[in-house]
Amino acid sequence: MRKELPLLITTVFGLLMVFGRWFWLGQLWGIESITDQWIIISNGFAVAIGVVNLTQLHGRNVQRRREHWPYSLVLIVAMYGYMAIALYETVEGPTATWLYDGLFTPIGSAMFALIAFYITSAAYRVFRVRTREATVLMICAVITMLGMAPIGEVLISGWHSVAEWGMDVPVSAAFRGITIGARLGFMATAMRIILGLERAHLGGYGAS
């Protein structure tokens, strides 16, 4: 029963979604819209699971003084501290806004900006022309990289057009192939789930 009930629910709702999209009556009843409202509601409850897990894991880290426990303490203080402030003065309140704009936003931007450093380091240490294919990949990458930035056109007139053609034609063609294949994979996965053949999401990796 522990597995049969979730499988039944999955199949019923999978078929309901198919009915809501393909059939006129399904669209008239607005089935997709209704189920999406349910998802919105259940998303709200999901946050509680996250808070419980974080509290349990990091609470134990602090309690047992595990290695690096001060980081766990920072996380708990930050999580409950911000929650308390936001509950007291709403998320749009001055302190919550100040914390968000002054701390969260720059940290998020800094994380994204790290990509520049990591790509630079990887360019030097990882990107090797070990094979003919890797050499072709590298040449194409350099043409596109410099061509899409203003410097390409400064170095050689018409470079930008070559890079743009590369993006529009061969890259698009390859990506379409991958996308079509992936979409078929999506479809096969959906079909396996609706038919109850795929059970990996219920634990273990076995099938029907």
Binding site: I119, Y124, R128, M145, A149, P150
Partner: peptide, 19 residues
Amino acid sequence: QDVISLGMVFVTLLIILGN
């Protein structure tokens, strides 16, 4: 834009130097 352009040149040089 200047940073992006010259950053690309810098990365290209590193790729060449690394190889």
